[in-house]
Every structure is written in C-alpha cells, then in structure tokens.
Write a protein that binds this DNA or RNA. Structure first.
Length: 940
RNA sequence: GCCGAAGUGGCGGAAUUGGUAGACGCGCUGGAUUCAAAAUCCAGUUCUGGCAACAGAGUGCGGGUUCGAUUCCCGCCUUCGGUACCA
C-alpha cells in the first residue's frame, strides 16, 4: 500500500477532534509550557503559504514539549477587530462582524488542514463582547491609576487624591503632563469637582487630551506613529496630516525606563530589542538655560547629550515652529524669517526628508548668553531642529556635531575646538570624547568623565540647568474614530470623562445604519440609536486602536470562559507566562511594545506574576513570492497596437520605453529562475487571462520563448503570485507541506517560496512509509536490532533532540532522511528501531506517524507518547576513524580502537605508511591528539 | 549616516565548543527497469590538472593569532532588515 496522504490525514483530523486529543487541562502534575503564536487578523484573502511558517514551527515545538513530558498550552485565536472589515462594510453595508466571522471560518478551515495541535476550546476573538469586556476593564484600571516614580510602579488614583488633600503635589514624584502646576493642599481642596477631575487627568495612565495627531482623511481616523510608513498610512498608502484633536492617550512614557531595562531579562532577537530601544530613544544629558541678551529674565532651554561641549557653542538654533521666534526676530530680519517659515511650512514630509542634506536657515537678529562664559550667541532658526523633540531648541557646537558644522560653514560662523584630541576640525566635526578639554573655562584639562558632573553641578547650583533624561517615545494615542473596535467605556459630563460602572461592562458595540462619520463629523458610533444607557450617559464615541485587544490576549487563553476576571488567578498562577512566542518582526514597535507596557501595568496591580510576559521570542522570516514581469513597449498616444518583447531582446530596442506587466506565475515556465519564460501555451494562457491584450504581438527569442523578468517580493494578490497552502496540501499532503516548509531553511530567515525541492520531501515520506509497508505487506518484525541499527536510531534521537531545542527544524528533517535511508539500505523493519523513530518524527509528520503508530498496535495517540530516551552506549564506536594531518593538512585517515589512549595514538600515528612517506627527511616537533577528533603531527 | 543580521558548490542550505568544509534535498550526468513514458532504484557530481592513483586551490576581500580558522581578532567590500537632521 502506498502512503495515501489525503485519506489518512482526514481520518486523523476527525479522530483527534472526536477524542479531544489536544485538549489541555489547567491543573496537572506535569510542568507547564506555554507556546504562543501571534494570532492573525482574519483578512478576506485567507492564508498563503507564508503565514503557516511560524505556526508550523511553534506546533512542532509544542508537540515536542508535550512528548517530553510537559503540559503544553498551545492556543490560537483571532485579532478580529480591524480596519479592512470596516472598509468592506462601508463599501457593501455588510456588518463587519458578519464578514469577520466568514473570514474566521475560512482561516479555521485552512489551519485545520495543516494538522495543528491547537486546543480550539480555548479560542479567543478580540471582537467578542465576552473578550472585549476585559479589554475595557483593563482600560478602566489604567484610568484609575497613576505612575508613582518614587514607588516605581502604578498606584491607585485614590492614593494620589489623598496626598493632594493633605500635602498638595509638590513632593509627589509621578509621571504627569509637562505643564502640571505645583499646587498646595489648600488649593486642591478649594477646587470644585470638575477642576479636581481635570487636574487628575494630568496623572491618569489613560486620559483625554488635545494633541496633534496623525489624521488620515481618506481613512477618516487618526493613526499612531507605527501605523505610518514613509509619511503615508501603512494600510492603503493614503496621505496623513497633523491635526489638533481631543484624543484618549496612554501614558506609556511612564514606563519608558522599565520597558528598556526589561529587555535585558528576556531572550528576544537582538535586532528586535534594539528596535524597541531606539523607538523609546532614551538619551541621557542635560538641559541648559540660555538667557536672552537683551532680557535676562527670559531663558531659552535646550537639551543636549554633550553638555561637555558647551564652551564650543557658537550659535543657537530653534525649530521654525518654536513659539518664541516672532518675539526674537528683529525688524530688519523679519522678512527673511517669515519667508523661511513659509517655505518650511510648505514643504511636505517627503520633500523635507529628500533634501535633508541641504543647509537652510535664517538669522533672527537676537542673541542669547552662554551661562558659562557669557559669550553672545546668535539665534538662528532652521528646519534641522525638530519642534517635537526636546525643547525644540539646540545649542550648536560645530566642532563636535556634523550638522552644526555644516550650518556654521554655510553661514560663516566660528568653529571652536574644545578637546585636544579633536582632529581636522577644518574639514568636519569630530564628536570624540577622548582627550582633555581646551578653550573650556572651568573644565579645561579635564576628561569627559570629569567634565560632565562638574558642569551639571555648576548648572544645578545656579538653577540654570540640570541633568536630564530625554525620551523619543511619545504617549500613545488611543482613540480611533472608527466603528469596528472596542467602545471606550467612558462617558462625558461637563467636558470631564467618567468611567462607565464596572458592573455595566461590557459596553457593547451598538448597531449603526452606516459605518461612516455623522454629518456633524462625529465618529460612526454617533449614529447609534440603541445604546444601552442612552439618555443616561453621554457616551464616548471613539473606539480603541487595533493594538488594544492584542495587548493582553495570552492571559485569556489560560482561562477563556471566565466571566469573573480576565483570567482566574489560579489559571494565571499555573501558566504564569509565555515560554515561547513566535511571530513576525513587523510588530517590533507596535504590538510587542504596547503589550509589554500593559503587562508591566498588570504586574504593578499584582494581577500577573511576571514583569515580562514572554521569555523567549522567535521571529519567523517572511516567505516571499516570485514576481514575474513581461516587457511591454509603451505605446504612442493613440496607437492601439500592443507589443511584448522577450526580456533578453529588450536591449535591441534602445529607442523604446518599456512597461513591466506582472503575469500570473502559473503561466510561467521555470518561474523564479533565470530561464523563466512564457512558451506558446503560456502566451495563450496570458491572452485568455488578459483579454485586453488578446490582439497583442509577442516578440519571442530564437527558442520561441518570451523571457520574463523575475523579482523576489511580497506574496500578494496584485502580483498574481499567491500560493495557497490548500493547493500544496491537496497535492502532497499536510505532513509533506509541514516538513517542506521547515526544510526550506532556518525559520528566522526570509526566503522566496518555491516548490523546487518539495519532491525530495515527498519521496522521503514515501520511502519512510516503505520501512513499514511494501506492496501491501506489513513488514514490521519483533527481531532484535543489530548494533548498527541501534546506532542509526540513537544518532537520530540525539540529533533531533538537540536540534529541536535550538529551533533548527531544517536539520531535523535531514536527520530523518538520513535515518530512513540507512534503515532502508539495511532492510531494517524492526519494531524496536522504528517505534522510537516514529515518536521523534511525530511532531513533524503528524498524521503519517499517528497512522503507523496505530498499525503498530497502540490504542492511544502517538502525540501522547513519551520522547525516547537517548542511550549513549549505542553511539560509542568500536573504532574511530581519525584524520591524521601533517601541519594541519590531512594526509590519511586511519581507524584506531575507540579505547586507544592518547599516548598510544601519539606513538602509532607516525608509523602509518601513508604518513611515513611524508615524514622522510623532516623532524617531528610535536604530535597533537584530540581524542575522538583528530591527530596532527607538527614538523619543523 | 547610525543600529542589527548575513556573505559557503549550479540552487536551498549543513558544519552545535577552533579539529576530515560542502551533511540533507533539488538540479545535472550516467546506468537499471520499461515497447515507451511516468514513477522507482543504483552510481557520480566544489573547482583546476590528470585515464587514473593523485596533486593543487577553495567558505566575500586583505591581513593576523594558532599545529590547525567557515568558526577568534583587525581593516575593507557587498547584500538584506530597521531607523533617521532625536541635538
């Protein structure tokens, strides 16, 4: 009997479901292990072959851990709120929940097709009210807490109120708005309810505020910074503008230090940690106040990371948007300054970035005073200084900063060297910290390490500055003017927000007649006529962003049906945290940062046991597609003729311009390779597919081929290169698909999809099957295996155990192939060898191994078996083949008894005939023996 | 520019602690089976020279450490990913 993938796989998937094979209990004597996949957004396009890569890897690991004796939680769910379903709803009028559920059904079917061991009884959907009830609940906890910097944790807002009432806020060290005034207890107590509430908003961890946001008119909503790529929306590529709006905001900046420091404790990819560090952008430095020359009561504050270079300051630069520019500009400079500001305001983000190298700016005509040496410092404006970072003003040190140097050179400003180790100041800035200071007043002769504290102390004593830590991270805007998201569980009274009572959660998303803003510009929820407490509450109308539901979902899997808490404390105490998290690196500064923030917060509340929720994280690489283009001669105006030219002939048409037309990869012979082309049949298919090119001419090469241009890129509908896993499974079976995706290479690596060598994996599975069956005959015997056969088995056990632990799944597949080939060569069909081999292969070939396991007479699933013990004795050789080298160059290989001592080997090696002839006339210096490895004879 | 990762046959890739470079698979070549094909099986396959035994070269480039380097160190080059006038 040949291996019948389709029937066997279907049979087992059905049985697993009937028998609840992959159900996981919350309490067991076994140690726990939690393997989590980033849950998908169920898009309308379904899965392509790239999506399951991470799921396959995590499934293999989860199954391995299960076999190794762990109680493994390996769940799956859906991040089911999101923009595409809403856009679709706007176009079609179909409720997003309906479209989303259809997409989920399709995803579920596609996932089932691949034989994953998910415990579907624990499935979660973020758009389910039973789920988002708890997203809303966490939001409310954030509202009711503030971040206490002294305690270094979130504390209840009630504690803050108590302090305000007794001592005011002067001694309160807490994360709060920058403009928070200092108040006394008397002032606090004198405030009315409304003013007190407004004041508390400056401290709450989530709060509404008027702020500049990224408004996307085409999408009708605000976007967070990580939802914008290259100045346009990540989804749809629409333009984005800055707009002042009242928005809910999350005080993630309160956790900036903990989010950076927490990275040290977790095993995540270095590049991903680095991205988060850069995104948070912690800079240690100092703020310094420069008094205005003509009004010493006014001071411009700057932030610098190099306060040690302060004696090299020769000018000051403000952002063009800086609020003091008007005031500082003297009459004779006003026209120039205004022209410059008009010009910078008119430039788009894209233009500004493209011309970043160009030096531009204007002089205000005013001066300020360097507090250290009293020098007059001219004040300029320039757009290389950003209004949104620091104070929007910088002290410029041309000898130490290249941008300042460029500016100084352009405007002929002085450049003062400040370190004796600085070199070539005439040709560019030298930002070194080496050497000792010169031209530097109180720090002359000091080193960097001595100078910085000296300067900061000097500043602090005079109230002219202080040591300061500056972050790039901004508070996260949390409102979206959309329909398909979690309603914010708050209402408004006298322009003050209050929480909907906890007992009334969830605030269920109401039905609306249209998914568009109202005529008055309110979000779609403004259309709702059936709010539960309409009339009683003036509901908040915005919804939460996509990242809200995904910021805590791993806890819900632990206890998915709990209606008393987001997860029961027993369940959380048992499962603790995620041991292995698998997903794409594109979430580095979005989901993976926000979820860490929420987790730190939940930790502060004592609700979860670990500061960091995911011990280890692996980024699976993207599987890319091959994009195939053909060359079309760009037609002249009014010319209806269309001509395609084979790619290798394009050079013959130097006077023509070409357009690249993507073609369906199915039409292309040898697609993805150098010789990819359309043959006659392919051209015919293309014509049928694109009737608008039915009458086109095709200029083929001498072989009658229309050569195509291949590129590696995204797998996407618009390039007609999407490969559906269902098609691959239908042809080769799920086991083959799973193993092939692993066999392609390391999971972290991006690689283009090709089916070039899937036949090899398929062949292997068939030959493996033939160890058990041949020509309908069951071959397995109870004979005692030979030593050689046991060695093959235990070599595989060792290799696969080691490799699975280090997530090297491609080499595991190779190890199976080696074992299978060798056993076939030896005609070994012995149960004692095949049974353990079956178990170590079970995480990979999940269906075939289960079938054979049953055929071997087992009544329980192979996926509940025990990982075989490695017995090293079988790996010990009678003899070892040593490479014998002379000066590192191998001259012979010789077998020695495995128990030969180092001395024996040293003595024997020079007397080997093949070695002897190389030793004539030279003297042996020494002989190096690494037992079990090699022998090297060093000659002089 | 800065940060991170990586450069190995015709291709995907292996080599875990410095110890026979190229496992495994694809492709290719030859053979068996077949009327023929598919499928399957066997042998070969880094490059150069040689019928061969064998010799030499070889892990992006140039140096270094070492008996021995894909692996460690120094300096370059290239590719990919991220990020950017962040003071």
């Amino acid at each position: 009997m040949e291996y019948q993938a389709r029937e066997i796989e279907q049979k087992w998937r059905q049985r697993w479901e009937e028998r609840g094979t992959y159900r996981v209990a919350n309490d067991t004597s076994k140690p726990k292990y939690y393997v989590l996949d980033m849950f998908p957004y169920p898009s309308g396009a379904g899965l392509h072959v790239g999506h399951p890569l991470g799921y396959i890897a995590s499934d293999i690991f989860a199954r391995y851990k299960r076999l190794a004796g762990f109680n493994v939680l390996h769940p799956m769910g859906y991040d089911s709120f999101g923009l595409p379903a809403e856009q679709y709803a706007i176009q079609t009028g179909i409720h997003p929940a309906v479209a989303t559920n259809e997409n989920i059904d399709r995803y579920r079917q596609q996932l089932e097709n691949l034989g994953f061991s998910f415990d579907w009884s624990r499935e979660v959907r973020t758009s389910n009210p039973d789920y988002y009830r708890w997203t809303q609940w966490i939001f409310q906890q954030l509202f009711q807490h503030y971040y206490d910097a002294a305690a270094d944790k979130a504390l209840p807002i009630s504690a803050l109120i108590a302090r305000f009432a007794t001592e005011g806020n002067a001694r309160v060290q807490a994360a709060c708005d920058e403009d928070t005034p200092t108040i006394t207890a008397a002032e606090w107590n004198a405030m009315d309810e409304r003013d007190q509430q407004l004041f508390l908003l400056k401290y709450r961890l989530t709060f509404p505020e008027e702020s500049y946001v990224n408004w996307c008119p085409a999408l009708g909503t605000v976007l967070s910074n990580d939802e914008i790529k290259d100045g346009v929306s990540e989804r749809g590529g629409y333009p984005v503008e800055r707009k002042l709006m009242a928005q809910w905001s999350m005080r993630i900046t309160a956790y900036a230090d903990r989010l950076i420091d927490g990275l040290d404790a977790i095993d995540w990819p270095a590049s991903l940690k680095e991205q988060q560090r850069n995104w948070i952008g912690r800079s240690r430095g100092a703020s310094v106040k420069f008094a205005l020359a003509n009004d010493s009561s006014k001071q411009i504050e700057v932030f610098t990371t190099r306060v040690d270079t302060i004696y090299g300051v020769t000018f000051m630069v403000l952002a063009p948007e800086h609020e003091w520019v008007d005031e500082l500009t003297i009459d004779s400079q006003r026209e120039e300054i205004n022209d410059y500001r008009t010009w910078t305001a008119s430039r788009s983000e894209v233009e500004r970035m493209a011309e970043a190298k160009k030096v531009t700016g204007a002089f205000t005509g005013s001066y300020c005073i360097n507090p250290f040496n009293g020098a007059q410092v001219p004040i300029y404006i320039a757009d290389y200084v950003l209004a949104g970072y620091g104070t929007g003003a910088v002290m410029a040190v041309p000898s130490g900063d290249q941008r300042d140097w460029n500016f100084a050179t352009h405007f002929q400003l002085p450049i003062i060297p400040i370190l004796d180790a600085q070199q070539g100041i005439d040709n560019g800035a030298d930002p070194t910290k080496e050497g000792r200071y010169i031209n530097s007043g109180i720090i002359n002769g000091m080193t960097y390490e001595e100078a910085v504290p000296t300067l900061i102390q000097w500043l602090e004593e005079r109230g002219l500055g202080k040591g300061k830590v500056q972050y790039r991270l901004r508070n996260a805007v949390f409102s979206r003017q959309r329909y398909w998201g979690e309603p914010v569980p708050a209402y408004w009274k006298d322009d003050v927000p209050y929480l909907v009572d906890e007992s009334e959660l969830p605030v269920v998303l109401p039905d609306v007649d249209k998914y568009l803003p109202t005529e008055t510009g309110e979000p779609p929820l403004g259309r709702a006529e059936n709010w539960k407490y309409q009339g009683k509450y003036d509901y908040e109308l915005s919804t939460m962003p996509g990242w809200a539901g995904s910021s805590w979902y791993w806890y819900r899997y632990m206890d998915p049906h709990n209606d008393q808490a987001f997860a029961g404390s027993d369940a959380i105490a048992y499962w603790q945290d995620v041991d292995l998290y698998v997903g794409g690196s594109e979430h580095a500064v979005g989901h993976l940062l926000y979820s860490r923030f929420w987790n730190h917060f939940l930790y502060d509340l004592g609700l979860v046991p670990k500061k960091e929720y995911a011990k280890k994280l692996i980024n699976q690489g993207m599987i890319q597609g091959v994009i195939e283009f053909i060359y079309l001669i760009k037609p002249e105006e009014g010319d209806d003729a269309r001509t395609f030219v084979s790619a290798d002939l394009v050079a013959n048409y130097p006077d023509k311009e070409f357009a690249l037309i993507p073609v369906h990869v199915d039409f292309v012979k040898d697609y993805g390779r150098e010789e990819s082309h359309l043959d006659d049949a392919g051209i015919a298919q293309f014509k049928e597919w694109r009737p608008d090119f039915k009458a086109a001419q095709f200029i083929t090469n001498a072989n009658g081929q229309l050569v195509t241009k291949s590129e590696v890129g995204k797998m996407s509908k618009r390039y007609f290169n999407v490969v559906n896993p269902d098609d691959v499974v239908a042809r080769y079976g799920a086991d083959c698909f799973r193993m092939y995706e692993m066999f392609l290479g390391p999971i972290e690596q991006a690689k283009p999809w090709n089916t070039n060598s899937i036949s090899g994996v398929s062949r292997f599975l068939n030959s493996f099957w033939r160890l058990f069956y041949r020509d309908d005959k069951w071959l397995v015997s109870d004979e005692t295996p030979t030593k050689e056969e046991m060695k093959i088995l235990h070599t595989a056990i060792k290799k696969v155990s080691d490799d699975v632990e280090r997530f090297s799944f491609n080499t595991c597949v190779s190890a199976f192939m080696v074992a299978s080939n060798e056993l076939n060569r030896l005609n070994c069909h012995k149960r004692a060898v095949l049974e353990p081999l079956l178990v170590i292969m079970a995480p990979f070939a999940v269906h075939a191994t289960e079938e054979l396991w049953e055929k071997l007479g087992h009544t329980t699933s192979i996926h509940h078996a025990a990982w075989p013990q490695l017995d090293e004795q079988w790996l010990v050789e009678d003899s070892v083949t040593y490479p014998v080298a002379i000066n590192g160059k191998t001259r012979a290989t010789v077998d020695f008894p495995a128990n030969a001592t180092k001395e024996e080997l040293e003595k024997a090696a020079p007397n080997i005939p093949d070695i002897q002839r190389h030793l004539e006339g030279v003297t042996i210096r020494k002989i190096i023996v690494v037992p079990g490895r090699m022998i090297n004879i060093v000659v002089g």
